[in-house]
Design a protein around this nucleic acid. Structure first.
Length: 570
RNA sequence: GGCGUUAUAGCUCAGUUGGUUAGAGCGAACGACUCAUAAUCGUUAGGUCCCUGGUUCAAGUCCAGGUAACGCCA
């Protein structure tokens, strides 16, 4: 059995994420992790919260809490919601962990030793009142070009002219409103990504099996304009990983921290250490050090397209540039964006459905199914309540849920709540088994390839095959003329339920567990052979008719939700 | 302003290196069934593949221009 390391892009700490964030990284990563575990592979599935940076500081200030406390609380919130969605992380870590501090400082030191870090002098706006340097967009003032009074330091929203914060008339801090701003000299570290350009270029070129979305974004950044640019990896903040060169101080870098994009991906590695330190595992280097066992690991990353540059260029620069035997990613599965009802999800305008709200109104399986079966793989996708209602009602309630309902209730009324023993399988039964064997093979191939939508479509077709069989063979008619034949038909149809449960578990784990529970099958595994799997329930095996698996979404609910999540009017 | 992405059935989307009558699900119409959450199953109808021009024996697919929507950048 193979060993698979899987990471999902780590969500930022400042609030609950929306469904677009979920479907772009964590959810498909979970689908894949669950599938590979069921196939018998050894899986380490890691995620974490991304906690550093100015937005976290501002969100904490707005909440009136120390930033460390705010992040600790929000981490718990996100962890609880992830659990609610059934995201099966082996560990959900924090980029603010001690492990990540040490590891980030280590990488910076090693990269400096390799000559891949430059120190550069810069001038930047400083606010004595706030006691800190201000990023360009946290300075506002009057636009020198058009006179607009709320122009940002990087650009005027009114006339769109690009600005330097020094150009603003009557500049002020957007954090405190302070106007006593001054320019101060400061020093920053730059990661010399440009020196890694050719290495990265060859590496990306070798990844011919990656999604076009992934490689095209990487190549654009490599070749656009002057090519790959060096990037600053330090900031003047309090909250973050203090700049050190390994475990020693870095002269001139006092009071600075690493920029969030530098330490965030390193958390993928630190998270494995956290996993061990939390007592969940024993050896993290076996997953991350190619000199200590990780050379046989297949590493797959999941992320939205906005994160692709960091994962194809920046983090690989860190890994490769270190000259140390760290595990490099093998496959990057990236996703486009999910739009909400004709526009973007918007956190600030409260537009769209956020993860906590989603769980408030419906079970996780509804969301998991719709999001995965509509995953934005080839282009941006569109959420609408009409489509959501129609898809969920049809696929889950009608095709799958009602199948379970109709056959268990029919059996109970004619044969009792146990698998009937009489009769033999005939031509139709063997044809169904053969058809399902083919379909399951196709489903596995799509899942292996991480073709999320196509996997969902194949799974749905497998569900529908059960209804087609029942409709064609009509045991409710057969039972009147040939009860033994009807018994055989019911026996096969009942056996579809545990098979469907196992195959569906990566998509809808809760419902799958309920199906197995109702059929009293405690230990079903992935089918080696469909024919053998369809003999799981032997004659006489008792079961219970389950409660309705999926209640339908009513028009009233749909309309109320559409109104509730439409966002603030502008 | 520069760059990029997208445009296929009423809706949501597939369409591999250019190759027969362009596909799926939903929705619609019609029919079958009556075990089941008025669920299921079958059949049929729906497309100027955004527009114009070009390359080619052959273009949804490649090229140029245009239109529209969206995104990124300075």
């Amino acid at each position: 059995m193979a060993r698979h390391l899987i990471t999902s892009a780590i969500p930022y700490i400042n609030g609950v994420k929306h469904l677009g964030n979920l479907v772009g990284s964590q959810l498909p990563a979970d689908l894949y992790a669950r599938y590979l575990r069921m196939r018998g592979h050894e899986v380490l599935f890691l995620c974490a919260t991304d906690e550093h940076g100015t937005p976290a500081e501002l969100a904490a200030a707005k909440a009136g809490k120390p930033v460390a406390q705010y992040c600790a609380e929000m981490h718990e919130v996100q962890a609880r919601i992830a659990e609610g969605f059934g995201l099966s992380f082996d560990h959900f870590g924090r980029s603010s962990s001690a492990q990540n501090h040490t590891l980030t400082q280590h990488f910076a030191g090693v990269l400096a030793d390799q000559g891949l870090i430059d120190e550069v002098d810069q001038r930047q706006i400083y606010s004595p009142t706030d006691g800190r340097f201000l990023p360009d967009r946290y300075v506002e003032g009057t636009c020198p070009n058009c006179g607009f009074e709320d122009a940002r330091g990087d650009q005027c929203d009114n006339c769109t002219k690009q600005l330097d914060p020094e150009d603003l008339i009557n500049p002020r801090s957007t954090i405190s409103g302070a106007t006593d701003l001054e320019m101060r000299a400061t020093k920053h570290l730059m990661l010399r990504q440009s020196a890694m350009k050719d290495t990265l270029d060859e590496w990306i070129d070798s990844k011919t099996d990656w999604p076009v979305l992934t490689t095209s974004i990487a190549k654009k950044w490599l070749h656009d304009g002057d090519g790959l640019q060096d990037r600053g990896i330090t900031r003047d903040l309090d909250w973050g990983v203090p700049v050190k060169r390994g475990d020693v101080d870095w002269p001139g870098m006092e009071g600075k921290v690493f920029y969030v994009w530098f330490d965030a991906p390193i958390e993928y590695i630190a998270c494995a250490q956290e996993w061990v330190d939390a007592g969940k595992g024993t050896d993290w280097e076996r997953w991350w050090r190619t000199d200590k066992g990780a050379d046989d690991v297949t590493y797959t990353q999941f992320m939205g397209k906005d994160n692709v540059p960091f994962h194809t260029l920046s983090f690989p620069s860190t890994i490769m540039g270190s000259g140390e035997p760290w595990k490099l990613v093998d496959y990057i599965k990236s996703f486009n964006f999910l739009n909400y009802d004709g526009g973007q999800f918007s956190t600030s305008r409260r537009r769209g459905v956020f993860m906590d709200q989603a769980l408030d109104i419906l079970p996780a399986d509804y969301w998991r199914w719709w999001l995965l079966s509509h995953a934005p793989e080839t282009q941006d996708a569109e959420f609408s309540w009409e489509n959501f209602q129609a898809s969920v009602n049809k696929d889950l309630a009608d095709v799958l849920g009602n199948f379970v309902s109709r056959i268990t209730k029919f059996c109970r009324s004619k044969f009792g709540e146990a698998v009937p023993a009489a009769g033999e399988y005939g031509e139709a039964e063997h044809a169904l088994i053969a058809d399902l064997a083919q379909r399951v093979a196709r489903y596995e191939a799509q899942m292996d390839a991480m073709e999320v939508r196509k996997s969902a479509a194949e799974l749905r077709a497998i569900w529908a095959a059960g209804n087609e069989y029942l409709q064609a063979e009509a045991p409710w008619t057969t039972v009147k003329s040939d009860p033994d034949k009807a018994a055989a038909q019911v026996r096969l149809a009942l056996n579809l339920i545990p098979l469907y449960a196992v195959l569906s578990a990566p998509f809808i784990p809760t419902a799958a567990a309920r199906m197995l529970d109702a059929m009293k099958v405690p230990d079903a595994g992935w089918p080696d052979s469909v024919e053998a799997a369809l003999a799981t329930l032997s004659p006489g095996h008792e079961f219970e008719v389950p409660e309705v698996l999926f209640a339908k979404i009513s028009d009233d609910n749909r309309e109320a939700w559409a109104e509730r999540f439409a966002g603030d009017r502008t």
